[in-house]
Write a protein that binds this DNA or RNA. Structure first.
Lengths: 196, 196
DNA sequence: CGTGCACCTAAGCACTCGCTCAGTTATAAG
DNA sequence: CTTATAACTGAGCGAGTGCTTAGGTGCACG
């Protein structure tokens, strides 16, 4: 099993940042270790003191990304607020994160198939938590009569799907601000949950 | 010599079908020509009489996919119907297609970066037409007062994004029928366009 | 100063990549 | 039969892959 170092060296973070940019642009399989290193003016062998393999580099990116998005959502959620306010805040945080960290999000959404089965399972568990946070709020709102949707599971799927897909198209000429995208998506989520 | 070939050879279609499956599972860069051939019991060299390169094979898949989805949408659209009915039919067709052709859709949505710039431009033009069909219906519905949304561009983006993302998660345990997914997405589209 | 150490590079290994090519096989027409 | 044509194979080329290794370099600390 892998032991996670408490403090990561600055070099490791630079390598990971360069890998995120390359993986987002060309995909994991389409990026060579030499390409990542070239972007940093280093030799390809320079990453191996910091990451045991290319796959572990991807896994490290996946862990950071999923932890980051879950933290962003948890931080935006105020359990004492109304369900409408909670859904608004959480969806805005989720969609906003996908826009703000577009490259990281792309890697996290589209490159996970390159992980080992063991690593993939760990990541899949983290991802399930994200959807569950939205599902909890929607279910609570429906139960309280604050939301009208008679298909809460479908709405949760649609909202999650919408937010995740932001990283695919962001930015466009008319949508360049992550916070604005977040608000727009919160609006869409409310419409889906308030209508029948 | 007197017979003009109107259809592609059966071998070419078999190769393309195997490539779609492989590209969908492992990505374009993550799939070798030898893997594609192995799935057909052929040698890797067997594809070159039919496709000039691996990239042309991808381009052929992209052309077929985009033509197919545009045809499916156009066939579902009845210009004499109400805007509500048109949006319902078109969104159901779009989302349904993504589910029904999940592997092809995945390739078409996520592997286009591997195309040459020239091929990519051709494909991008086809894709724009898809969004425009939805945009036309939404704009018409708003103008006619049939839809209430005061942010039609945002709604069109959200609806397109929703439909495209179907190929990423489909199928799930609870959503296995493409037609049902289409209906569910049509419902979501209507909610987004009817509320303010 | 010298020692240890973290970090790095150049070289290279074993392997796979997309693709080519000479030659074989199957089919159909003359 | 011969001939033409297309599809296909096995071998293999040059380039690139992830990764290893031996050795060098600069820096903190005694």
């Amino acid at each position: 099993m892998t032991t996670v170092r408490v403090t990561e060296s600055a070099a490791a973070q630079r390598i990971r940042q360069a890998a995120i940019a390359s993986f987002a642009e060309s995909g994991y399989a389409g990026t060579s270790t030499r390409q990542i290193a070239a972007g940093l003016g280093m030799s390809a062998a320079a990453m191996y003191p910091h990451f045991r393999s290319k796959e572990e580099l991807l896994y490290s990116i996946a862990l950071e990304g999923h932890r980051s998005v879950n933290e962003a959502i948890a931080a935006a959620d105020d359990a004492s607020a109304s369900h409408t306010e909670r859904l608004t805040a959480v969806v805005a945080a989720f969609a906003g994160w996908q826009a703000r960290h577009q490259q990281l999000a792309k890697v996290v959404q589209y490159e996970m198939r390159a992980l080992t089965p063991s690593h993939f399972r760990t990541i899949a568990a983290l991802r399930r938590k994200t959807t569950e946070m939205i599902a909890t709020i929607v279910a609570g709102g429906v139960e309280a009569g604050e939301f009208a949707a008679d298909d809460p599971d479908d709405v949760v799927l649609a909202i999650s799907s919408l937010c995740v897909d932001v990283c695919r198209w962001f930015p466009t000429r008319t949508h360049r601000d992550p916070a604005t995208v977040g608000q727009m998506y919160a609006r869409m989520a409310l419409r889906m949950v308030l209508a029948t």
